[in-house]
Simulated assay, not measured.
Amino acid sequence: MKQNKKVQVQDLGLMDYKETWDYQELLFQRTVDIKTKNRREAEQQETPNHFLFVEHPHVYTLGKSGDIENLLVDEGVLHEKGAKFYKINRGGDITYHGPGQIVGYPILDLDNFFTDIHKYLRLLEEMVILTLAEYGLKGERSEGETGVWLDVGTPFARKICAMGVRASRWVTMHGFALNVNTDLGYFDMMIPCGIKDKAVTSLNVELGKKEIDMTEVKQKLLDHFEVLFKAKIIKEKTPV
Score class of each variant (00 low, 15 high):
residue 198 K to I: 04
residue 98 G to Y: 09
residue 63 G to Y: 05
residue 194 G to T: 15
residue 100 G to F: 01
residue 239 P to I: 01
residue 46 E to M: 09
residue 225 F to K: 02
residue 178 L to T: 06
residue 161 C to A: 15
residue 235 K to D: 08
residue 83 A to V: 08
residue 121 L to C: 13
residue 16 D to I: 01
residue 235 K to A: 09
residue 74 D to K: 12
residue 231 A to P: 01
residue 174 H to R: 05
residue 126 E to T: 15
residue 97 H to C: 03
residue 112 N to E: 05
residue 117 I to T: 14
residue 132 L to K: 00
residue 78 L to R: 00
residue 89 N to E: 14
residue 42 A to P: 13
residue 109 D to T: 04
residue 97 H to A: 04
residue 29 Q to G: 10
residue 225 F to I: 07
residue 17 Y to K: 01
residue 3 Q to F: 03
residue 12 L to A: 01
residue 118 H to E: 13
residue 116 D to F: 08
residue 79 H to M: 15
residue 22 D to S: 08
residue 120 Y to H: 08
residue 214 M to V: 12
residue 33 D to I: 02
residue 85 F to M: 08
residue 28 F to G: 00
residue 127 M to D: 04
residue 117 I to F: 11
residue 82 G to A: 07
residue 152 V to D: 10
residue 201 T to C: 09
residue 60 Y to N: 01
residue 142 S to R: 11
residue 238 T to E: 14
residue 163 M to S: 13
residue 110 L to N: 06
residue 77 V to N: 08
residue 45 Q to I: 15
residue 195 I to S: 04
residue 65 S to V: 12
residue 128 V to I: 12
residue 101 Q to I: 00
residue 207 L to D: 04
residue 41 E to Q: 11
residue 192 P to V: 07
residue 183 D to A: 05
residue 188 D to A: 13
residue 174 H to C: 10
residue 114 F to I: 10
residue 66 G to D: 04
residue 89 N to K: 11
residue 126 E to I: 09
residue 73 V to T: 07
residue 15 M to E: 09
residue 193 C to P: 06
residue 171 V to Q: 06
residue 69 E to A: 10
residue 200 V to G: 02
residue 128 V to Q: 00
residue 200 V to T: 13
residue 116 D to G: 06
residue 128 V to K: 00
residue 115 T to G: 15
residue 113 F to I: 12
residue 221 L to W: 01
residue 134 E to T: 11
residue 69 E to W: 05
residue 161 C to W: 08
residue 157 A to T: 11
residue 138 K to C: 12
residue 145 E to S: 14
residue 18 K to I: 14
residue 137 L to Y: 05
residue 64 K to W: 07
residue 35 K to I: 10
residue 215 T to P: 10
residue 147 G to E: 00
residue 239 P to M: 10
residue 122 R to S: 09
residue 51 F to D: 04
residue 10 Q to S: 15
residue 30 R to C: 07
residue 135 Y to L: 03
residue 83 A to K: 01
residue 16 D to E: 05
residue 166 R to G: 14
residue 43 E to G: 08
residue 220 K to F: 06
residue 48 P to I: 09
residue 170 W to E: 12
residue 44 Q to F: 14
residue 88 I to T: 15
residue 78 L to K: 01
residue 48 P to H: 14
residue 123 L to T: 13
residue 197 D to C: 11
residue 77 V to L: 08
residue 52 L to A: 00
residue 16 D to C: 02
residue 178 L to A: 06
residue 207 L to N: 10
residue 217 V to C: 06
residue 179 N to E: 00
residue 80 E to Q: 13
residue 199 A to R: 06
residue 45 Q to M: 09
residue 24 Q to W: 04
residue 97 H to T: 04
residue 119 K to A: 15
residue 58 H to S: 15
residue 46 E to P: 03
residue 175 G to W: 03
residue 239 P to W: 02
